[in-house]
Computed example of a mutant assay.
Amino acid sequence: MARSNTLVVQQAKAALDQMKYEVAQELGVPLSPSGYNGNLATRDAGSIGGNITKRLVQIAEQSLGGYKR
């Protein structure tokens, strides 16, 4: 079974990681520079993920521009 979080564009990983740290900083959630965040509260992780999703949707909408169904 394929993992659902596999990146289609592998080069996007750095941009997504950068976005994760930016969102966490804006929310006041400290992330470990080592990459291990096992002590992170579920609520905080969800807030970070939700905000990243919002940003990605906004980026997609902007890139589609005048596209209408």
Rank of each mutant, 00 (worst) to 15 (best):
M1L: 07
R3E: 15
R3A: 08
N5S: 13
T6R: 14
T6V: 15
L7D: 08
L7F: 00
L7H: 03
V8I: 08
V8Y: 06
V9Q: 15
V9E: 12
Q10W: 01
Q10A: 03
A12F: 02
A12S: 15
K13P: 03
K13V: 12
A14Y: 01
A14S: 06
A14D: 00
A15V: 01
A15N: 05
L16N: 11
L16T: 07
D17K: 04
D17C: 03
Q18W: 00
Q18M: 07
M19D: 15
M19Q: 14
M19S: 13
M19I: 08
K20Y: 06
Y21V: 00
Y21E: 03
E22I: 00
E22W: 05
E22R: 09
V23S: 10
V23T: 09
Q25F: 00
Q25E: 07
E26G: 12
L27K: 09
L27E: 01
G28C: 10
V29T: 00
P30E: 01
P30K: 06
P30Y: 07
P30S: 06
P30D: 02
L31E: 04
S32P: 05
S34Q: 11
G35Y: 04
G35K: 01
G35N: 01
Y36R: 09
N39M: 07
N39Q: 14
L40S: 04
L40E: 02
L40Q: 06
A41R: 10
A41M: 09
A41I: 00
T42A: 08
R43H: 02
D44G: 05
D44L: 05
D44I: 08
A45G: 12
G46V: 04
G46I: 02
G46Y: 01
S47T: 00
S47W: 08
S47V: 02
S47R: 13
I48L: 01
I48G: 06
I48P: 07
I48F: 03
G49V: 01
G49S: 09
G49W: 02
G49Y: 02
G50K: 07
G50S: 15
G50V: 06
I52E: 08
I52F: 14
I52W: 13
I52C: 14
T53C: 05
T53N: 11
T53A: 08
K54Q: 12
K54N: 11
R55Q: 09
R55N: 12
R55H: 12
V57Y: 12
V57M: 13
Q58P: 14
Q58A: 10
I59V: 05
I59L: 14
I59T: 03
I59Q: 14
E61V: 15
E61T: 14
E61Y: 07
E61P: 12
E61H: 04
E61N: 15
Q62G: 08
Q62W: 04
Q62F: 02
S63N: 12
G66D: 09
G66H: 13
G66F: 05
G66E: 12
Y67M: 11
Y67V: 07
K68H: 11
K68Y: 14
R69T: 09
R69F: 07
